[in-house]
Write a protein that binds this DNA or RNA. Sequence first.
DNA 1: AAATTAAATGAACGATCATTCATTTTTTAG
DNA 2: CTAAAAAATGAATGATCGTTCATTTAATTT
Lengths: 198, 198
Amino acid sequence: MARPSGAKGEETAERVRAAALSLFARQGYAAVSMRQIATDVGVQPGALYNHFPTKQDLLKDLMSGHMAALLAAWEQEAATAPADEAPKRALERFTRFHIRYHLARTDAVFISYMELRNLEPENFAGIEAQRRAYEDVLTRILERGAAAGEFKVSEPRVVTRALIAMLTGLGTWYRPGGRLSETDIETIYLNMVTGSVT
Amino acid sequence: MARPSGAKGEETAERVRAAALSLFARQGYAAVSMRQIATDVGVQPGALYNHFPTKQDLLKDLMSGHMAALLAAWEQEAATAPADEAPKRALERFTRFHIRYHLARTDAVFISYMELRNLEPENFAGIEAQRRAYEDVLTRILERGAAAGEFKVSEPRVVTRALIAMLTGLGTWYRPGGRLSETDIETIYLNMVTGSVT
DNA sequence: AAATTAAATGAACGATCATTCATTTTTTAG
DNA sequence: CTAAAAAATGAATGATCGTTCATTTAATTT
């Protein structure tokens, strides 16, 4: 009896994810066919169904995988911070982390907030919960800062969404190799973030 | 000989636009069929082609129409300002205008920056030029403010994109009837915008 | 009114879609 | 090496897609 080791299978599944990620980001979920994905992977369309039950499941896998990785990466980042880190330093940490992480995965980021409407209700709810959990990270930093008198933030939830929109929007236009380095960008955005809450 | 008056025709075309706008915003361009649009309008699919040569032209019409209306609305707003308006006041004017205008047309806004990738290159270039023209409005205000020593903005183009992303992101979550009025929101965002450039 | 044009119908075109499945090939376990 | 399971093939399913077109109906002009 052969136990499921998944060695070859998981490798193919990963190639499917990579192909789908790139295609979905460039053309959009609805505009991409399973045949295009299969062609990019170098396989027949039917083979995709050995790894993902439906096209919708493939999208959900990409989106929830991205959000889970984002939350895990933040946990790791937060673990390096002192327990009593000042809100201003925490805000800087979050801002730099968010920019770096999102600029390194523009395709997944793009998909994860662009294809929400193509998710079936059940899948949508799951992704929304993850998104909310990530927003909570920033909201709590803002609340701590407001309580400490360091930030002037009357509506932490609103400010959270405003800041995340600003930071995430970066991915729609910034491309490496231009006049400004990623570090330059980090500095500019950090100044704006800091200024907007003080 | 009957000259083209377009009375009835333009009325139907407008109903097509309205149906397509709503459907595209809710499901995405690629996920909406001409048959769905025709059903919403109450007409047979073939009739749509009396008003728009292709589905792509319908999308382009919606997007460029939105951008042209936005630019025209700003021109009207700018015409009410004194010629020597202080940069800070100009920034407030732009911020309030942007929020009000965009919150009143969330569907068109959503489509116009979500469906860019579904535009053929020629159409894409046209929309991009309009978008650039709108960005220029804010960039010039920031440049004036920086020159006058009122703003601390080292990269007006970058700050422009950051601010517009922040302001436009509002449309993805704000819905009237909640705890915060549109005026409340305007105040919060204006404080953030002002703080981020000073 | 008649004449002319615009608009809508109803049916059809070929193409492509996501998905299924019996079969074959490849990988893995014992 | 052999047996079992996983993975891939190749072909097919019915459905739906954007678009076309001959024809009919409605609107508009003279």
